[in-house]
Amino acid sequence: MTERLPLFPLNTVLYPGLVMPLHVFEERYRRLVADLLAGPDEQPRRFGVLAIRDGREVAPVRESAGPAGPLDGLGTMTGDPLEALHRVGCVADVTTAREQSDGRYELLITGTTRFRLLSIDATGPYLVGETEELEEQSGKGAGALAAGVERAFRLYRKRLAGAKESTLAGEQELPLDPQVLSYLVAAAAVLPAPVKQELLACPDTAQRLDAELELLRRETALLAWLPSVPATDLTRQAFSPN
């Protein structure tokens, strides 16, 4: 089953369950948001988020989530938009939208389901994509892999924060569901955008967890050799399993 979705290209990756603030000020995306808000209240206010391929963004055109937000510099594409965007993205539901006096918008969006981009209509004020939903499969051994990823992620987080291996006071509980855990780790780990995109596009949860386990072990080993590391609040981002 296919669906037409307005597209919002970013230079970051949105995952199912991730709650993300978004500051919208470029004209084409202000139009996108205005069109969504103009619909009936019962109509879902959603759009597709796709990561821009490396080297395709233009620096003068930027959107930002602000100083405390997870987004820092979005862009527009050059050339064929279908070639400029990754094909696997995430549907974003608009949780809240606040219009500013100058016409900008402050959004809070929640990632819901993954989709594959089939084609793009670039004739309107913003891009619209023909998409198909990608159902998440569990895969073989997801439960056992989730336990390993949880342990590896806790150690990775402590190494990144410069903490000792002993339990930190007030340490946040991690989700038990393997799929939810896989997306939380993908979102929270400090990894290049192409790697984050590969994790989003993994065929099933087990393969994503397997890749994360290898990445976390590698990154933790590298961090152990650094003389000092920055304190980073990795899992302070809001994350919803819905």
Rank of each mutant, 00 (worst) to 15 (best):
K164W: 01
G75L: 11
A144I: 08
G111K: 07
L200R: 10
R218F: 09
P6C: 02
P40C: 04
Q197M: 07
N242Y: 09
K196Y: 02
R116W: 04
D41V: 13
F239D: 01
C202I: 01
E198F: 03
T110H: 07
T76G: 13
F115P: 00
L215Y: 04
V195C: 02
A163Q: 10
A206W: 03
E173N: 08
S228R: 06
D41K: 12
G79R: 06
T167Y: 01
Y126G: 03
I52S: 01
L82I: 14
D210Q: 15
A193E: 13
N11V: 00
H23F: 08
R56I: 00
A92P: 13
E42S: 12
T113H: 08
A51L: 05
E3P: 00
A186V: 05
D35E: 11
Q207N: 07
A34Q: 13
L223A: 11
L36M: 13
A146Y: 05
L215G: 09
P67D: 06
T131G: 02
A122C: 06
A147L: 15
N242H: 11
L37S: 09
D54C: 05
T12K: 09
G89T: 04
G141K: 11
E135L: 10
E57H: 12
Q43D: 10
D233K: 03
L50R: 09
T205Y: 05
T110D: 04
V180I: 14
P230I: 01
D93F: 01
P60R: 06
T110C: 13
S138R: 15
L85A: 04
L32Q: 04
P9S: 12
E130I: 02
Q172M: 10
L223W: 03
R208M: 05
D41E: 14
L32P: 12
V88D: 05
A51Y: 03
D41M: 01
G39C: 05
E198G: 14
A221W: 03
D177S: 12
V94S: 06
G89H: 01
K164D: 04
P81W: 05
P21C: 12
N242R: 14
V190W: 02
L36I: 08
P125A: 15
R154A: 00
P203L: 06
L176A: 15
L36K: 07
A189T: 15
E27S: 14
D35S: 09
A201W: 03
D102P: 15
V33G: 05
S101F: 07
D54R: 14
A161H: 08
T123S: 15
L107Q: 12
L22E: 00
V149I: 09
S64I: 10
D93W: 02
E27I: 12
T96H: 04
D80L: 04
V94G: 04
R114Y: 02
P44C: 08
C202N: 01
L168M: 10
E26D: 08
T123F: 00
T220M: 00
D54T: 14
P178Y: 02
A68K: 13
T110R: 15
E171A: 08
T2R: 14
M1N: 03
E27L: 13
Q207D: 11
E57R: 14
V185R: 03
Y105P: 13
G170K: 07
Y183H: 14
P192C: 06
F115Q: 03
R154D: 01
